[in-house]
């Protein structure tokens, strides 16, 4: 058997070879290398099966569609704050936004704690005011979305947000009155963690 003849039948060959083909492979390095390479490529290919992970929003979108189409049957009264309905994946950014704000506040507090004592002017923090406004706008957006999808849950979320916002205000006042007070700083961090948690509960998902 010649190399040309062998190569002509190669696409049709499975795992086994005829005696004639085996003898050709024993005597021809080029053809035996070719077969070894093609087998190696095939073996490695199989290892690629299921090796990639989709981003979390894929499931979120699927579930939203299933709910909209009525394929998921869950009575509304089963919902609680711990297991709220899924919201649009487009609002996912609110969770990282809340987490990012938490980090920003952590950094601000850390800088205040380690830096020189602030002057009276510095004690009226424009960044905090600005952030509070952004949060208020985000709160309204979250409540509107919850209200649109699950009107019965809106009041519960609003009450939660009011409580956590009051907690944040108190913690901010304490932290501002004594920037070196580590306990006050910890309270403020906890307050923002709680707010992030409320957002996460509303979106019923964790960060990717």
């Amino acid at each position: 058997m010649t190399c040309e003849e062998f190569e002509r039948v190669l696409p049709e060959l499975g795992s086994g070879h005829s005696i004639e083909q085996e003898e050709h492979l024993k005597s021809c390095r080029a053809c035996s290398d070719l077969v070894a390479d093609l087998n190696a490529i095939s073996r490695q290919g199989r290892l690629l099966q299921g090796s990639e992970e989709p981003s979390p929003w894929v499931w979120n979108s699927i579930e939203t569609s299933l709910r909209q189409e009525g394929l998921i049957h869950q009575p509304l009264q089963e919902h609680s704050l711990l297991h709220p309905p899924r919201l649009s994946w487009r609002l996912r950014w609110l969770v990282p936004a809340a987490a990012a704000l938490l980090i920003v506040f952590g950094v601000l507090l850390h800088e205040r704690g380690t830096g020189p004592a602030p002057t009276a002017e510095q004690q009226s923090p424009p960044a905090s005011v600005q952030t509070a406004e952004v949060m208020a706008s985000d709160d309204m957006q979250l409540l509107n979305t919850v209200g649109a999808r699950m009107p019965s849950m809106r009041d519960a979320y609003e009450a939660n947000l009011r409580t956590v916002n009051a907690y944040i205000r108190d913690a901010e006042q304490s932290a501002h009155s004594d920037p070196n007070d580590e306990v006050a700083q910890q309270y403020l961090r906890n307050a923002y963690e709680q707010k992030a948690m409320v957002y996460e509960m509303a979106l019923d998902r964790s960060l990717p």
């Binding site: 099966q49 992970e53 989709p54 499931w59 579930e63």
Partner: peptide
């Protein structure tokens, strides 16, 4: 259950 089925097969389908 839908989510469990999704989790079981998501990697292969997505890949």
């Amino acid at each position: 259950a839908f989510e469990a089925l999704y989790n079981l097969h998501k990697r292969r389908v997505y890949s």
